[in-house]
Design a protein around this nucleic acid. Structure first.
Length: 670
DNA sequence: GAGCACTGC
């Protein structure tokens, strides 16, 4: 059993099945009882009737209602899947797809991958027998490429649609077309209250809305009487006040980033040393995505006798990680959001006010096990007037090259004319089209190019990286580039502990090469596979993330399979490398030529084609090295500065060789 | 010169 299940729908842990005979029967009985106790059970017949009679159902299912695990089973029990059709249920997160599938498989009493399965990128746990299929929303969009009418499904449920992931938005747009052609298909959109009306308007008059209560305890919301100038300091004070004045119960505080979290953790350690009055201690625990898994798991350990747990977290605890036993929530009122500026083609992380939807979600974290309190570090009139209902949907603030490529592959030519819930700004679309054209994926009429564009759309990677991978055969370095691409697709390869920073950096240095980050990643993977024999101890000793490295191995295999399907000649193993580093770097330029920069005398870089000054990110090997010309895989504005992340040293001539058309007009400036 | 919210294909 997993704990901290990420779709927090379904309360009530119980031990897994798969034991034999008598005890299994008893557990089955208890599972049935548990299912019947969920709030959704009372509405079983009503919901089935609505689904039977109307094409679209908007389901407002509050936390703990059981919608994600039960509705699919009701439909299965009712015989919807009898004509070899299946039920699809999408989730915006991989962990949710896998953990909900695991739970439902247990409830039905089958192995995951049989009647109940899941499908996420690089991992397909389904079979011919699968009738209830959980999947990430992006995977369903990929399935549309090969099965445009989703003919293998009788019901599609888009769960957590209110989160408005880019894939959810695109799916809803396409599904609206699909249900016009497939009268037998049923669509269920699960949403929070704030978005339900908007979805209903989008799908039109045949849409029904239903609401199911959740299994939640009341949470008192408290506001500041006066605004605070320093929400970090206020968080510290509030934690101490709660600890001194409120009855027992763990605390969860939301802040925007790692730095703030560390500040608060240290302050709490300083100010709440165990005292002589037998006063209960405070046990502060940081939580953010950069922590390795074993440290993240510490938040689930019960606090020692007489201590109160305080989890200081980023947004990760808002929807991705669920912790039981939280009674007090502190909401600083802000969140870091990624924004994309089409004019400068740059991404930035900006601290912004939370949305009302997010604030509600944060408060709800206090009411999972008993009545709780939420301390909002802002005034009530701010909550009512200033905070937006929801954050800007992802489709309006992200690079659209990849999604556009997929839509083109679906035969949708005019992206601008799509019927979207909220259409993307035209500049974003123009931007994506321009990039795809320069990569050779689209021709001058905006049509997918026969060889390259079509194959790029098949690969589940950023278009620039897809281009590199597909070009690699002509450079004779496909094996090496497969490794680089796989390593770029996993996160946090290098582990930098807060307390042992320099030791870790010394170890990492042993893999570093002057040519830059991409070849350094290649080195790490080779060392892990050959010298390290893929052992976790080896990885741990080198301050490398074992989970990330093993995943890179499986991603590499999957990518090789994709390329094989596309007719490429994939080298058999990672063994002996015969190409030199220069070939790999040239191959990288074939996809990343638009991301070029030239070093300035002061160590900063000037972007090619603009006057913009950027810096090597401190995590890059190029931070402490020099290279006249470089390409980068990502640009990110953080605070005052803009950083390049993922940098490789190149020669100026390679840019002109790789993309003569692209650089012809800019040659003077380059 | 000094550091990335969170997802996903």
């Amino acid at each position: 059993m997993s704990y901290g299940i990420n779709n927090d729908d379904d309360a009530g842990p119980y031990t897994g099945l798969r034991t034999a005979s008598v005890s299994a029967q008893f557990k089955l009985a208890s599972i049935r009882r548990q299912r019947e106790l969920l709030p959704i059970f009372r509405h079983r017949q009503t919901l089935l009737y609505i689904i039977e009679t109307s094409p679209v159902l908007i389901l407002i299912g509050h936390t703990g209602s059981g919608k994600s695990t039960q509705l699919t089973q009701y439909l299965y029990e009712e015989g919807w899947t009898s004509e070899s059709k299946a039920i699809a249920c999408t989730q915006p997160r991989r962990v949710a797809a896998t953990s909900v599938a695991t739970r439902v498989a247990e409830e039905i009493g089958c192995q995951v991958g049989q009647v109940v399965g899941y499908s996420i990128r690089f991992e397909d746990m389904t079979s011919e027998n699968t009738r209830i299929k959980y999947m990430t929303d992006g995977m369903l969009l990929r399935e549309l490429l090969v099965d445009p009418l989703l003919s293998r499904y009788c019901v599609v449920m888009i769960d957590e649609a209110h989160e408005r992931s880019i894939y959810t938005d695109i799916l809803l747009c396409i599904l609206k077309k699909v249900i016009r052609k497939r009268k037998d298909l049923r669509l269920i959109i699960s949403s929070a209250t704030l978005q339900a009306e908007e979805f209903a308007n989008f799908f039109g008059p045949d849409t029904r809305i239903a609401s199911i209560e959740g299994k939640m305890y009341p949470v008192d919301i408290l506001y500041l009487a006066e605004p605070t100038e320093d929400y970090v300091e206020k968080t510290i004070q509030t934690i101490i006040d709660i600890h001194n004045e409120e009855p027992e119960g763990d605390i969860l505080a939301f802040l925007t980033g790692r730095k703030e979290i560390n500040t608060v953790v240290e302050a709490i350690l300083d100010r709440s040393a165990p005292d002589r009055n037998n006063q209960a201690r405070l046990l502060p625990l940081p939580l953010h995505a950069f922590l390795p898994q074993d440290q993240q798991n510490r938040i689930f350990d019960p606090a020692p006798e007489g201590a109160r747990k305080v989890i200081i977290s980023t947004n990760i605890a808002e929807a991705s990680v669920t912790i039981d036993g939280i009674v007090y929530v502190i909401d600083c009122g802000y969140v870091k959001l990624r924004a994309y500026d089409p004019a400068s083609k740059m991404e930035s992380l900006i601290v912004s006010p939370v949305s009302k939807a997010a604030a509600i979600q944060r408060a709800g974290r206090a009411g999972r096990t008993k009545p709780g309190k939420c301390f909002r570090l802002y005034e009530s009139q701010v909550a009512e007037t200033i905070l937006p209902d929801i954050s800007v949907p992802e489709i309006q603030r992200t690079n659209l090259a990849g999604p556009i490529l997929q839509l083109k592959s679906l035969g949708i030519e005019n992206i601008a004319k799509l019927d979207m819930i909220t259409p993307p700004p035209v500049e974003l679309v123009a931007n994506g089209l321009e990039l795809l054209y320069s990569l050779g994926a689209l021709d001058e009429y905006g049509k997918l190019t026969a060889g390259l564009g079509e194959r790029m759309a098949e690969l589940p990677l950023d278009p620039m990286l897809s281009k590199v991978l597909l070009t690699s055969s002509s450079f004779g370095c496909m094996g090496e580039v497969l490794t680089v691409a796989a390593m770029m697709s996993v996160e946090n390869v290098f582990y930098l502990p807060e307390d042992n920073h320099t030791a870790a950096e010394m170890e990492h240095l042993k893999f570093t090469v002057d040519e830059g980050d991409h070849l350094t990643l290649y080195n790490v993977y080779q060392a892990f596979s050959i010298r390290g024999k893929r052992s976790s101890k080896w990885a741990h000793d080198k301050y490398l993330n074992y989970k990330a490295l093993s995943r890179a191995g499986s991603v590499r295999n999957q990518l090789a399979r994709y390329l094989d399907k596309l007719g490429a000649k994939v080298p058999s193993s990672t063994s002996l490398s015969t190409v030199d580093a220069e070939t790999i770097r040239k191959c990288l330029v074939s996809g990343y030529f638009a991301n070029a920069a030239k070093m300035q005398p002061d160590g900063s870089f000037k972007l090619v084609g603009s006057e913009k000054i950027v810096w090597a990110h401190p995590s890059s090997v190029m931070f402490s090295r020099s290279a006249e010309w470089v390409i980068y895989s990502e640009l990110m504005e953080l605070g005052e500065k803009t950083y390049m992340i993922g940098i490789t040293k190149i020669e100026r001539d390679w840019l002109l060789e790789s993309a003569p058309d692209y650089y012809q007009v800019r040659r003077g400036r380059a």
